[in-house]
């Protein structure tokens, strides 16, 4: 545009007016370009919201009219995951107790390498924040006011039955809240297996060593 004006009117005042206007326009355009996808608190606008919002309840939205005779069951409970089915089942694998109500001594599942690895993954997700990755109980959270979590390599925890540790994960203990609703039962048993592995690693039981290594012990 500037060029045409120049041809018409070389050195005339028009180009003096057009040039700054062009520059301003460019600047505004550049500023706008950078605001693409900028932070905003306003919800997205949908000019054509056909079928976006259908007459149904989506998960984790509030039900305004609970049908008669229906009981809300813990917000973590869901039909396809943890929760309902898990909590309603009975038996040592679900409660950690045998028929006489005593804690079961051993994990009621085959403890394989995969099982312990699963336990390690779940431990790092659900326990390590508070108990530390090695189960030492030392984390920044104690500085922030959390009562000191028990060291899981402590002799007292080593002496517990497997079922009791399972029970503590499920229902909590004193200052520790239960995690049963959030972790499925088989994963809780896998965590118990990993806690046992941590304890064994810490104690360094002689059975872990080869014969020649054991011979070298004082």
């Amino acid at each position: 545009m500037g060029k045409r004006n120049n041809a018409m009117d070389p050195a005339g005042p028009v180009s003096h007016r057009v040039m700054p206007m062009g520059a301003l326009f460019l600047l505004i355009a550049l500023a706008l370009v950078s605001c693409r996808g900028g932070r905003t608190e306003r919800p997205p606008i949908h000019l054509n919201p056909n079928m976006m919002n259908q007459a149904r309840y989506n998960p984790q939205t509030l039900s305004r009219n609970p049908p008669d005779g229906v009981v809300a069951f813990g917000r973590d409970a869901r039909a396809d995951g943890v929760g309902r089915a898990d909590l309603l089942k009975e038996g040592p694998a679900q409660t950690g107790r045998d028929a006489s109500g005593k804690w079961v001594a051993r994990i009621p599942a085959a403890v394989t390498g995969d099982f312990i690895n699963r336990g390690r993954e779940r431990f790092d997700i659900h326990c390590a924040v508070c108990h530390g990755e090695t189960g030492s109980g030392k984390t920044v959270l104690t500085e922030k006011g959390l009562p000191p979590p028990t060291a899981l390599i402590d002799a007292r925890v080593v002496a517990m039955a497997d079922g009791e540790i399972f029970g503590i994960i499920t229902a909590g203990a004193r200052n520790m809240a239960g995690l049963g609703k959030r972790i499925p039962a088989e994963d809780r048993w896998a965590i118990v297996a990993y806690v046992r592995a941590l304890q064994a690693a810490r104690r360094g039981v002689p059975a872990d060593l080869s014969d020649s290594q054991r011979g070298a012990l004082p």
């Binding site: 973590d76 508070c130 959270l141 006011g145 520790m176 809240a177």
Partner: peptide, 22 residues
């Protein structure tokens, strides 16, 4: 496992916040 990534319940926050930054 599920289609939806659930938001945590308030109780699960309280496992820490019953003590932290009360």
């Amino acid at each position: 496992r599920t289609a939806v990534a659930p938001l945590p319940s308030g109780e699960s926050c309280m496992s820490c916040h019953a003590f932290v930054k009360k």
